[in-house]
Write a protein that binds this DNA or RNA. Structure first.
Lengths: 193, 193, 193, 193
DNA sequence: CATGAATGAGGGTTCATTCAT
DNA sequence: TATGAATGAACCCTCATTCAT
């Protein structure tokens, strides 16, 4: 039993690595199996197919990200504090498992439309926080048209910084940039912390 | 002769459409040919192979984007004005050919490392403008560590807004959001226009 | 111990059902196991493999059919009576277990050549009865060249009627058609009952 | 063009041979290709897949059989003559291409339900002839319940004779048995020719 | 006796590319 | 230039069977 569980987790981690390194289409089931130290057919005892493997990898971690952000913002008061907590949290998560984040970034376009509208989503968490700030009039003269536009800006600032890091245009840990990201987001949204 | 040129351009445009709609790996040479009104083999009269087609589509347009931005900033004075001009310009380019932009976004990960370090790049154009602003001390107390980090923020704000539009989280034209984007970037970088 | 026997019989019956519904090649060992309430590996406690399972299912029942027909004809006197008894008997057997008959029909082509030439066979039983009728000059002017040809006709009349029933070209029970089948066979063979 | 056509016909004939020799499931696309002197992928230029190959082989020839029988009966008058003509015709067709007939017999179970109810079918042709005989009161005291039952008998007599030949229980050509088959069918149906 | 993870060969199919026409 | 048949490798997946537990 323990062995089987390990196999499944091994497959998932190796697949993640390969997907990030070569793309999903560029990675064969054969290669995943070999890297995991098993044969091709064994994959199918643990996953219905390659699609399910990708989907599981995405949906499990995408939701987990959302829940982590939700927990972080829940402990704070005020938009600025909530945003800051989430940004710092994201930086820590990113540094802990860069590969995972890159995978999420890589496959989101093909998987997002399969996500249940009710399941937690990072976008909805952030948009919710900003909307709440609007409702409570924490923004004096918001430069954005609505909460979703502001959400795009926040996501852009944070994710593009991570992306620049991935392509070696930026170096060092994400956490070392957390303060700057917080300031940038506050500045973009017109928030005085 | 004009006909041959047309065929090549037809292939490129049809391929672009298909790549955006189905992904590069999800689009076969056969399908590109059929959509272009020719047969498989004929593709190879115009391109060495599928890879070259993708590469040409990417590199030509990626460089063109860079040159357009370069021209726009060149007419302005001061970081803020230059940035504003580029952002507004980008919004117009985007609205003129959304498919093209989506293609660039789609394939950049696999193509960026093939880009010649000397050929023009949107990232370098923007980073250059910001660096110049730093050199001329246009930023009072820059919240970013270096020009590249600030570039990431600007790109993030603009590109993520476009991405949100693609996934229908935002609606309307990009140009209608240009003013907001300019304000957001100024705010993020600590620029008073 | 009774349980073990039951398991084996359960497997055989479930396999029979699945083979008839989906074909032998279309039915996996995994499916047979699941339907039987056990797991794949357990099948191999009872049978050497899938082939043996098919073979056992075929040979046991094929021989049993032959023995039943043999017993039926043995109680009668004269070709006509013997044939009539076997035809009526077959109709009853068929109605009792249509699935079994369909299975026999389904796999006979692949299994017949493995049948021991000495073991009882329905064909030989019927051919024997007709040959005996020939030897005892019960046929006045036989329209057939030899006993085997006449046997083909009898089998054809009866089995094709059953086949038409399977494919819903005929309805009702086989036994309701027994009298007609007897008449048809007598007519074909030139027998006046 | 001539080459392509030949390839397609070659594939069809070789597939037919292999299907009859080893069964459809027992014959791989790889093997069909090799026997046809081409590679696997080439099959798919001519057929959408293995299923279509089987279906084409079946439907084309099944309909052709029906049309031949239809033409034969159309030239005759009276049930007895029509039936005799079809039986003799069938024997000739069979002798001309035994493999083809065996293929039809082999796969009919899996393909019959895909047959368009409107397309010609041997069963319907024969049943139509018998029904017509009933309508015109050519049968004095029909021993069968309806035309379809009589059709089953006729098909059984003829096809089972062919089947016995296939399994070497009978020898010689089918045509040599045509007179006997006609007599058998007449006898079974209670027809005095 | 039973489990179910793993094997390894084979299944049908797709696809970028080549080449005789 | 254009065609489309053919190639050959790789694709994802299924399956009968084995074996450690």
């Amino acid at each position: 039993m323990a062995k089987g569980t390990n196999t499944k987790e091994t497959i998932k981690r190796q697949a993640l690595n390969l997907f990030v390194a070569q793309g999903v289409d560029g990675t064969g089931v054969r290669e995943i199996a070999k890297t995991s130290g098993i044969t091709e057919g064994a994959i199918y005892r643990h996953f219905k197919g390659k699609d399910e493997l990708v989907w599981l990898l995405f949906s499990e971690n995408y939701s987990a990200y959302a829940e982590k952000l939700e927990a972080l913002q829940d402990r704070e008061h005020g938009v600025a504090n909530k945003l800051a907590a989430m940004i710092r949290g994201f930086c820590m998560f990113y540094d802990q498992d860069e590969i995972l984040f890159r995978f999420l970034l890589l496959v989101q376009h093909g998987q997002l439309d399969k996500i249940d509208d009710k399941s937690p989503s990072p976008v909805r968490v952030v948009a919710g926080v900003i909307q709440q700030g609007l409702d409570q009039e924490e923004f004096k003269a918001p430069p954005f048209q609505d909460a979703m536009e502001a959400t795009a800006w926040v996501f852009g600032i944070v994710l593009e910084t991570a992306t620049f890091k991935i392509y070696n245009r930026l170096t060092g840990s994400m956490y070392a940039r957390a303060d700057g990201l917080v300031k940038a987001c506050n500045g973009a949204l017109g928030l005085k912390p």
